[in-house]
Design a protein around this nucleic acid. Structure first.
Lengths: 372, 372
DNA sequence: CTGTTAGCGCATTCAA
DNA sequence: TTGAATGCGCTAACAG
């Protein structure tokens, strides 16, 4: 017997049927909106339902249909504006098609991701969207397990190579490359990479870099794009110009300060995240340098703030909501009976040119303490 | 018979029981973690469950217990960084106590809020957290209905006066008042209010203002705080200095431009939202004015960006996550059997003083087109 | 077209 | 302690 099911009388279909003087099936049919019911009975049922304040019990319905009309979403951090935007896209697209969403944040921890997957399986969501922190083959067991249970899954923002799943991303590598190319074209050769590989033992080799960059797919891609641009311009990689360590705004400031203090210091900064941008800017200011006179900068994830900065910042804009919306649509299409295409959908980002890039010029020759 | 319940064999408790050679009740007891089971049988059941890859069906469990361990959350917009932060607080606090969350955005539309409430009732969430767009007595029927059904509800970010519910907010009025007082102390008397009342017919009277400010509770409170500060300083309200119309960054820019073009133009701006801040800044820049030399500014919702602006912006910081966490805790306490206290929990915000406020000084005498 | 009947998977008496 | 039986509210055959 159920525990203390909350008081407020929640009439069931049987009660409505009784009130209307019809069989439960008839009531169920009209209330459930399926099967045939004569207009007169339909009216009586509706009236009874209205009178009793009947509300269908989605749980019970899911029990017998096996469909919950609920999607599970696993993100790195719902509090992060980027993921919040993605979530909005998912949410809007889902609701438009009658689905609700349960969101879980992992904070980039694999164990949390596994736990989240279990929770969603238990709650019998119809499908799952994941921005996974997994990379290696042995890190995707939970996803494979869910797939094995027949749960449709779509990846968003981050591809997971060992998995053959529908995936919605942007061309991170290309976007990064383009940004760095812009700086190179402006004449820069000492370009810092802010916020990427998380832990690398010094001295940092190119291989070690790409190795650690496995951490998060997007970071690795952006690093590759950075290297692509460097390679094309025959600029050798200087590990000193790549940030390593914790991905926090504070640490980004530290690292940029270090790059700024180098004998042959950086003249441009490529930031892979919003917090990396603000962290970098803090270091630039603290060093008494000015952007773009002394330091050029381009970063990921445009926002209203970037446009009102002095100078207005050249940024890479991601189609945040569309990323989520597309992921939801692909998933819902599968739920509607469509065949999973197992393809990678690449949405396009955009480099918004403003005023934070200039030739290295005279600024380069200022000492890093040129200002009072 | 269920529809095409996804293939991947999802073993039930009965199957596990069979595999273990025990009664279903015994299997249910060990798997459900209740009642007494001898160690040996317990072992056998666990082994069988492991072998079959058993996962409890939370839906079925909810059916018989009447508890879903799911919270419903209704916010204005999950894509908005403020609400995303609140959501993170809710999410973290809930998960820590074994609850998951279904989030729904209303975009400030009452009909969406009503629909969201219905969805949550249907899905049998155990409790609901709402940042409601409702204000008047006739706008809270859906909340009353949910309450009548015995669903615990907690309000977050926005109080709803006609309702006697646990509510978690900050002192918006006090925070606004403090900010405006700071500007007044600096010598300002022409202070613009950016982003608040949504639609007011000109001419705008003080009464009409407060009337329309009903739109969203926080807006009303912030407007009251602004008026409080003005009243205290015996500065008469000039309706021309209050923004009306759509709450978009673009419109904020328009309105501020208008205030800047006034014969006796504003010398300070109080912005109630992040987008109002950036919108205002755009207008200031476009007018060739500089902050804080010509225009002082304080706005709501501090962010990493505000600190790296030129000048660093003086902002009001809200305890975003705590707002959500506290709401979730209050709700969960009730679900744990605690009595609803029906009280308003006011968390404190903080004015972060940086450099965007200065005396009106010389800037005041510049023409609004003093720059090339 | 309508009503009867039988589950969905689990929790929970109640006897054994 | 354990197992058999019953019900949660709804959908879905099936018969009438």
């Amino acid at each position: 017997m159920p525990a203390d099911r909350s008081q407020g009388g929640r009439p069931t279909i049987s009660e409505v049927a009784a009130e209307a003087g019809v069989g439960r099936a008839t009531a169920a049919r009209t209330l459930g909106g399926y099967g045939y019911v004569s207009p007169e009975l339909r009216e009586r049922v509706l009236a009874a339902a209205e009178k009793l304040g009947y509300r269908t019990n989605a749980l019970a319905r899911s029990m017998s249909t096996g469909v919950s009309h609920t999607l599970g979403v696993i993100l790195a951090d719902i509090g992060n504006p980027f993921f919040a935007g993605v979530m909005r896209g998912i949410s809007d697209a889902s609701r438009a098609r009658g689905f609700d969403t349960i969101v879980l944040s992992t904070y980039e921890r694999l164990d949390e991701e596994v736990a989240a997957t279990d929770v969603l399986i238990d709650k019998r969501v119809d499908g799952v969207i994941i921005a996974s922190a997994a990379v290696g083959r042995d890190e995707v067991k939970h996803i494979r397990a869910a797939m094995g249970r027949g749960i449709p899954i779509v990846l968003v923002d981050r591809a997971v190579t060992p998995l053959d799943l529908d995936t919605v991303v942007i061309d991170n590598r290309g976007a990064a490359r383009e940004a760095v190319e812009v700086m190179i074209s402006a004449g820069h050769r000492r370009i810092g990479f802010v916020w990427g590989p998380s832990s690398v033992s010094t001295p940092v080799t190119r291989r070690a870099l790409l190795e650690t960059a496995r951490n998060v797919w997007t970071d690795g891609e952006r690093l590759r794009g950075y290297l692509d641009a460097l390679d094309d311009a025959r600029i050798p990689l200087d590990p000193e110009l790549v940030m390593t360590g914790p991905k926090t705004e504070e640490w980004a400031t530290q690292e940029v300060a270090r790059m700024l203090a180098l004998p042959d210091r950086v003249t441009a900064l490529f930031c892979t995240e919003t917090d990396a941008v603000t962290g970098a800017l803090r270091a630039v200011r603290a060093a008494g340098l000015s952007c773009p006179r002394d330091i050029s900068l381009i970063g990921f994830d445009d926002s209203a703030w970037a446009a009102v900065m002095e100078p207005p910042l050249t940024m890479i804009e991601q189609p945040v909501r569309q990323l989520g919306a597309k992921a939801a649509e692909v998933l819902l299409d599968v739920l509607d009976g469509g065949e999973p295409r197992h393809e990678v959908h690449t949405l396009s980002s955009r480099l918004i040119t403003r005023a934070s890039v200039a030739p290295p010029g005279k600024g380069t020759f200022y000492s890093q303490q040129s200002k009072p």
